[in-house]
Amino acid sequence: MPLELGDTSATLTGVVTVDEVEPFAAWLRGTAKPRVNLRKCNHLHTGAFQAMMRFRPKISAAPADSFLAGLVLPLLEGSSGAPIRQESDPS
């Protein structure tokens, strides 16, 4: 299952397709301080990426996939994402 949604954290695994976009976005919208684990994520559908850009979850684990880690992750942790910076990092 590519999408595991918990109370405050979600784990994305493998290829996240357009089918996961709606539940994922709804979860982000409804979760106060969402955290997303991307470690095992191999691809993010643009819709899922867009939802993360909008709701700015904290990325709790960086993806292993080189494209996501090198080029997409910096955007998800980008400058306008004030909420991420304010949160204390437990790890």
């Binding site: 976005a25 819709g47 867009q50 850009m53 909008r54 080029l71 955007l75």
Partner: peptide, 22 residues
């Protein structure tokens, strides 16, 4: 070599997740 995203200045409140706005 590098990727940047163009975001809407303001996200519409009733954003349809399936509309690509970026």
């Amino acid at each position: 070599a590098h990727l940047d995203v163009i975001e809407p200045i303001e996200w519409p409140a009733d954003h349809d997740e399936y509309a690509c706005l970026i």
